[in-house]
Design a protein around this nucleic acid. Sequence first.
DNA 1: CCCCGGTTCCAACAAAAGTTAAGGACGCCG
DNA 2: CGGCGTCCTTAACTTTTGTTGGAACCGGGG
Lengths: 243, 243
Amino acid sequence: MPSDVIRGALIKRLRVSSAIADEDIREIEALPISVRHYPAETAVVRDGERATDCCLIADGFCARSKTIANGKRQILSLHIPGEIPDLMSLFLHVMDHDLSTLTAATLGLISHETLQKLHRRRPVVAEMFWRDTLIDSAMFREWIVNVGQRPAPARLAHVMIELRERLKIIGRVDGASFEMPLTQEQIGEALGITAVHANRVIRQLREEGIVELHRGRVTVLDERKLSELADFDGRYLHQSPTL
Amino acid sequence: MPSDVIRGALIKRLRVSSAIADEDIREIEALPISVRHYPAETAVVRDGERATDCCLIADGFCARSKTIANGKRQILSLHIPGEIPDLMSLFLHVMDHDLSTLTAATLGLISHETLQKLHRRRPVVAEMFWRDTLIDSAMFREWIVNVGQRPAPARLAHVMIELRERLKIIGRVDGASFEMPLTQEQIGEALGITAVHANRVIRQLREEGIVELHRGRVTVLDERKLSELADFDGRYLHQSPTL
DNA sequence: CCCCGGTTCCAACAAAAGTTAAGGACGCCG
DNA sequence: CGGCGTCCTTAACTTTTGTTGGAACCGGGG
């Protein structure tokens, strides 16, 4: 995979959330990145580990999660190409959660050292990355609301729409359908419900003609009903650099 | 309230999470802060508003929350003296949630402009504040797990222990007891359950001789049982500057 | 081609949490 | 001191979600 393809999605994404100068883009394009391939369902960094690199997703889907004493797992966020899910490890060196692949994935590793140097050289880029971690944080806040206050069908609808909005930015939504490569077990872990209940909810949305979910692909059947159910307000994604 | 008292808790807190030079402390002590008093249960900044200052809690308790379309509210975090709950507004100018007081509170307002200038002058301080927002983010992750995976009694126990650990840093734990000035309604909103169920859970913990909760004050009766129930691992608070 | 493991799907029952309703405690204010 | 409002408390009932267990489906590897 050529270097510009790897960085393309990142720059596309940064442009949406921050104003960014050409000079800074060149700096980012010059960043030394080492590429690694991971199979599906593999740990990239584990809870408790000490990270020395951040990873930029070049291709594939990832998820962050935490596992508690009784063995239950909670998925905290989903990640798509162009994102750096463990940017936080730059300053929080020991991981407090897992980062793993959902699908087979290509990741670009950027060393902490490289990033620190870039920040010293270009404080504006540092601010941009800071802003990126703050958006990450805003997404966690919305995730708390989702899991804490919405009934299960609304939770699923909300996660779907959030994912779609983010996929749109990198041009990965194909009409009424987009990828969401989670098993029902994982959907349950994301929504804070069991896999059995996740299945019930998926069936319900299908029977009501709202969305179809098949083989890791979502097809929206009734946009109106879906967005009403999801109660989605994308402001928390902070996609307007001017504001 | 004298200026050094206002800044004291902040510096105490920053020392715990980051290594910090005397020179930088002096910079922070020189920050122009305007002090305001708020009654209990008052909005400080509202969802959708555009912030121009960050507020340092000098005294009192605050909470951040989001309210969804059906009127339900989710509390996202609790905040104590020494914290800057809306530091994120520095780069995410329009608020995606509410910040309000729980008790009567004294807040020190620091303008965004002042902070930006300080960051340009002392990048190390910027990194320290960045790290602070990342710890904030780590706390949201744990809150997701709490609301998503733990049964209600464990949720309550976990929130209590987290609050206690943070109060310890600023010397606000008095033996087996500490402040937690939430109504049962608010406890429900924090845990993602109804007030009625919150009451059930509180009663249960009292009947089992684990904790007593009375008038906004928690008294731990059985430390062993409490920490077993809470499944608490404080690593996510990232309180070790060396790591 | 068929078997195997992982998923999906489903039903019956159990447990947890939400809803509604109403009485009691407590502090504040007139 | 009495009344009012907020919070706390509890019970009875409903709904949602979890649990258990099992069948059908599907894709990949032998």
